[in-house]
Amino acid sequence: MSHVDDGTLHAYLDGELSPVERGRLESHLADCAPCRERLAQERSLIESAERLLALAAPPATGRDLRGVPRRRLRFLVPGVWAASLAAAFLIGRTLFVSDRQFAPPRAPAEALAPVPSAAAPAVSAAPAAGKRAASPPRTVALAEGSHRVAATESVPPAPAPVPAAAPAPAPLATPGVVSNQAAQAKLRGDSPAFIPPTAVTVTTPPLLPPRADEQIGTSWPVITAAPARDALGAELVQIPGLPIRDIRQDPANSGTVLVEQELAAGTVVQLLQARAEASVGETLMRAPRTSPLVKNVGRLRVQIAGPLSVDSLFKLLEAAR
């Protein structure tokens, strides 16, 4: 075998050679000191290039997100909960941390005994990770325009908890009663079923001024799953497959629980949940009037939030169980 070209060495170091090619290369390297030396040079070249690219990583600071209006969702009084006097609101936070750890693993090219630097760490993974991992959390303000909501007058008070699966008596579609097929259709990319605005609910003027940039829920005490279940009287609603970062409880209203799940490194989706039949007086309600981001899941009313498009959030909420 003649000497190896740069492209093959890079493909080897990148873990992109086929097993056959790799075997051929390694047996050549075993006999060829000059090529081993070049391999070491190319390895350090790759590391240098990755270090340089890491310097040009997007600046991950809170200041970049705070100014982005599209992530600042406006919370108004929803018109959808005619009978289910419940609450949920949505908050999103992101913290951009290391993303390299989520890149597909690349085969380390370290198996070769005769190579002097064979003990060096895997090429692709190491250099980029550290710097970004240190980035501070960033918080997106999503509560601008949020209002505390008082009782609605046209809705008869629920004397006792109603059965979980009972549909809302009001003649409007709640997001919780979307059929499975409809949900599937939506997940295939059809337009989300926006909840029709309704006049059923009489809303009072906001009791609180808009609280822009407030980190809602972030100061809420973190609790464990068991008390959260007790507070809700039901299993926590969550998006399957995503790690739970925190469970928090509204200190002012123990029946309101916030589940924070990590969608990607640094992207947190929040599921605010309360019993669907909870008394309105005990509940904060922050959601856009036509929000597709609230729905009943089992006995709970859940609202989703996160630094994603409404469409994406809607689809994630559809997956929540």
């Binding site: 997007p58 993303d99 890149a103 599937q184 497959g241 490194a265 559809e318 997956a319």
Partner: peptide, 23 residues
Amino acid sequence: MPDDLADVYRTTFPALVRFLYRK
């Protein structure tokens, strides 16, 4: 399907931001 969605997001979004940032 939603899990796929989340997976794609998880594995791709930060890299996509980085890719776009450098453009």
